[in-house]
Simulated assay, not measured.
Amino acid sequence: MTTTYERIADEIRGRIRSGELTPGDPVPSTRRIVAEHGVAMATASRVLDALRRDGLVEVRRGVGTVVAAGAAGPGDAPRVPDTADVVRAAMAVADAEGLGGLSMRRIATDLGIPTMSLYRHVRSRDELLARMLDTVYATSPLPRPLPDGWRARAEACARTMWAAFQRHPWAAHVMSMTRPQVLPHGLAHTEALLSAFGRIPGRPLDIDTRMHLTVSVFQLVRGLGMGIESATLARKDDGLTDEEWMDRTMPDLQTVADPSRFPHVAAATSTDIDLTLDSLFEFGLARLLDGYAAFLGDAS
């Protein structure tokens, strides 16, 4: 949510960007901001501090705070960002810092525009997230031609999604199974699986069954994919690989895994097991599709 000082700062930014205030013109003083907006002096000071950080204003002795010499006016203003620019900027932040670093304020700052102007492109943060996820699908197309067999096609769809989530670790958190977003580019994945499950030799399936088979594939990938962002951010935070972290943690785990109480856990902690998100994905996908084959009576 935009704070009061951010809203006021955005109004002044807009006046500078539009050319209403030009380099050298005085900007509203803290006293004027207090009087016009009914805010505290500390809030007014934060407004001017924000504008100074943006390089839009400067303090001149004997004059006060004025529009900085390098502030862009209408004649030299950069290209006005469009919706695609907003989505790309948001994805760049999410890719680098995770969803926790994503805010409308941050996107506007990166684009050099007032925060409120973002709402000309997206009505809400949820709409922005949906557009971001749809862009992930758009830039992660399914292989062409798709395999014919239902199992090969399910694997192709799942691996395409898995690779996309690895490139954009936040995407799995945005994807909803219970309240699916309208994602035009994501429909290709749904269509590919529904059609594949509609062509099982000797086993015609109704659309309800095919949809459950399709969404279960999505859910497997999404569920495992939700661990990618936290793992990525943890590696950035402490500088340790997952293997290094496990090496440090294993002695403590072995200490509490009393063989008399937890013999199977103790055996697991004393064995070199290559357990990663990738291995869980491959194992989980294979076992899910094995179950499908038993259900369908078809191992293709």
Rank of each mutant, 00 (worst) to 15 (best):
Thr4Asn: 01
Tyr5Ile: 00
Tyr5Gln: 04
Glu6Ile: 08
Arg15Leu: 15
Arg17Met: 06
Arg17Phe: 14
Glu20Thr: 10
Val27Phe: 03
Arg32Ser: 14
Arg32Trp: 03
Arg32Tyr: 00
Ile33Met: 06
Val34Gln: 14
Ala35Ile: 05
Ala35Asn: 13
Gly38Asp: 08
Gly38Phe: 08
Ala40Tyr: 12
Ala50Met: 00
Asp54His: 08
Val57Arg: 03
Arg60Cys: 02
Arg60Asp: 01
Val66Arg: 03
Ala71Arg: 03
Gly73Gln: 06
Pro74Gly: 04
Ala89Trp: 00
Asp95Ser: 09
Ala96Leu: 08
Gly101Pro: 08
Ser103Asp: 07
Arg105Trp: 02
Arg106Cys: 02
Thr109Val: 12
Thr109Asp: 13
Thr109Pro: 01
Asp110Gln: 11
Ile113Phe: 07
Thr115Pro: 00
Met116Glu: 06
Met116His: 06
Ser117Ile: 00
His121Cys: 04
Arg123Val: 13
Arg125Phe: 06
Asp126Met: 08
Leu129Ala: 07
Asp134Leu: 07
Ala138Glu: 15
Arg144Ser: 11
Pro145Met: 05
Pro147Gln: 08
Glu155Pro: 01
Ala156Gly: 07
Pro169Cys: 08
Trp170Phe: 15
Trp170Ser: 01
Ala172Phe: 12
Val174Phe: 04
Ser176His: 00
Ser176Phe: 00
Gln181Val: 01
Leu187Phe: 01
Ala188Val: 11
His189Thr: 02
His189Pro: 00
Ala192Ser: 13
Leu193Cys: 12
Gly198His: 11
Gly198Pro: 12
Pro201Leu: 05
Arg203Glu: 14
Arg203Leu: 10
Pro204Trp: 14
Leu205Lys: 15
Ile207Ser: 09
Asp208Lys: 11
Thr214Asp: 06
Phe218Cys: 03
Val221Trp: 04
Val221Arg: 01
Leu224Gln: 03
Ile228Lys: 06
Lys236Gln: 15
Lys236Asn: 10
Gly239Arg: 04
Gly239Ser: 08
Leu240Met: 15
Thr241Pro: 02
Asp242Glu: 15
Glu243Val: 13
Asp247Phe: 02
Asp247Glu: 15
Arg248Glu: 10
Pro251Gly: 08
Pro251Phe: 01
Thr255Glu: 08
Ala257Arg: 11
Ala266Ser: 15
Ser270Thr: 15
Thr271Trp: 10
Ile273Ser: 14
Asp278Tyr: 02
Phe283Met: 15
Gly284Gln: 10
Ala286Glu: 15
Leu289Arg: 07
Leu289Phe: 12
Ala293Asp: 11
Ala294Tyr: 12
Phe295Asn: 03
